[in-house]
Simulated assay, not measured.
Amino acid sequence: MTARLRPALGLALAVALGVVASVAGAAWPTLGAPVFAVTAGVLLSPLANRWRGALDRGIGLAKGPLLQVAVVLLGAQLSLQQVADVGLSSLPVMLGTLTPCLLLAVLLGRAMHIGSDLRTLIGVGTAICGASAIAAVTPTIRAKDPDTTYAISTIFLFNVLAVLAFPPLGHLLELSQEQFGLFAGTAVNDTSSVVAAAASYGSVAADHAVVVKLVRSLMIIPIVVGLAVLVRCREGVAESAGRGGRVSRLVGLVPWFLIAFVMVVAMNSMGWVPDRSHEVIRLAAVFLIATALAAIGLSTDVRALRRTGPKPMVLGLVLWGSVTSTSLLLIWLTGDGD
């Protein structure tokens, strides 16, 4: 095989799995394309490992640049108007669930001797927006593939439990449509699972939940910037002399794809992204994320996952419980959604 064909081979395999996962995710939205993609990649990883030399470059393209482009495209679903209309009123609940979740991820994860990258991925995936947040954070902290796979698997398990358990819980607590929409939007992770849970409660709950969920996704921005700063500090980036050096260093802390993400959000807010293109862009983002996660799955060392043990799953359970309980408590205390 020629050197020119090697990158194409790994990329083609990831793209093929991304197509299959996207179709499967559309048929079973409760699971979603990311779960199908990473699962298929993991199942094929022993075979991929045999051809590692031929597949590595293409797989690297899929789980690197393609993943970053997908994060940028997610910005086309957001606007500053949505933040003003619904997001600002729901910010207390969102921040009130996000903060303890991230603190627990750090403190409990450290006490349980869970690796820094893995506890970070599980924390942001639970606190913000599941696989999309994990996809955004992975290139920023340069997380290893097994950590990404384990984090996505953990998030997926509790997404399924939320879809099954939250609607009966909402009826038991006599939550209004708006209250349940706020609850689902802040306590369920992936967008597909948010829609699945809220739609079973009612159309008003579903509409409210989607907006809350989209605004919650904006939390990716400060989290990724903060993590980029921490990574650079951990790597011992030298101080630059002079004002110009400080500015250059600050700019260098922000990943390019995050800057592009913010620009796309601004463009959408100004109406420069046509409404008719939103669904196409969303599907493109889902496909690219599925392709990237398939590549991550193909790179997974299953034996390393076995060595990790059940502790990360326990951490995910505690974080899920934290987000659920704090969301309900804050909705009750503030009366949001009434």
Score class of each variant (00 low, 15 high):
Met1Lys: 07
Ala3Thr: 12
Ala8Pro: 03
Leu11Ile: 12
Ala12Asp: 05
Ala12Glu: 05
Ala14Asp: 08
Ala14Gln: 08
Gly18Asp: 08
Val19Ser: 11
Ser22Asp: 14
Val23Cys: 10
Thr30Gln: 01
Gly32Lys: 01
Pro34Asn: 01
Leu43Tyr: 03
Leu44Met: 09
Ala48Arg: 01
Asn49Ser: 14
Arg50Ala: 10
Gly53Cys: 11
Gly53Asn: 15
Asp56Asn: 14
Asp56Thr: 15
Leu61His: 08
Leu61Glu: 05
Gly64Ser: 15
Pro65Tyr: 12
Val72Pro: 01
Val72Asp: 02
Gly75His: 09
Asp85Arg: 13
Val86Phe: 02
Gly96Tyr: 04
Leu98Tyr: 06
Thr99Leu: 15
Pro100Trp: 11
Ala105Trp: 10
Ala111Pro: 14
Ala111Tyr: 14
Leu118Thr: 08
Thr120Lys: 04
Thr120His: 05
Ile122Thr: 09
Ile122Gly: 02
Val124Cys: 12
Ile128Pro: 13
Cys129Trp: 00
Ala131Ile: 00
Ala133Phe: 11
Ala135Pro: 02
Asp147Cys: 06
Leu157Ser: 01
Leu157Thr: 01
Phe158Lys: 01
Ala165Asp: 09
Pro168Lys: 10
Gly170Leu: 02
Glu174Lys: 11
Ser176Met: 00
Glu178Arg: 12
Glu178Asn: 13
Glu178Gln: 13
Gln179Val: 02
Gly185Ile: 05
Val188Thr: 10
Val188Leu: 04
Ser193Ala: 07
Asp207Ala: 13
Asp207Pro: 03
Val210Thr: 12
Val212Pro: 07
Ile220Thr: 12
Ile221Leu: 07
Leu227Ser: 03
Ala228Tyr: 04
Leu230Arg: 06
Val237Gly: 09
Arg243Trp: 15
Leu250Gly: 14
Gly252Arg: 11
Val254His: 06
Pro255Thr: 11
Leu258Lys: 05
Ala260Leu: 15
Ala266Val: 13
Ala266Tyr: 09
Met267Val: 02
Asn268Pro: 14
Val273Ser: 02
Asp275Gly: 09
Ala284Asp: 08
Ala285Leu: 04
Ile289Thr: 01
Thr291Gly: 04
Ala295Ser: 15
Gly297Val: 06
Gly297Trp: 04
Asp301Gly: 09
Val302Gly: 02
Val302Ala: 09
Arg307Val: 10
Leu315Phe: 02
Leu319Pro: 05
Val323Asn: 03
Leu329Gly: 11
Trp332Ile: 10
Trp332Lys: 14
Asp336Lys: 13
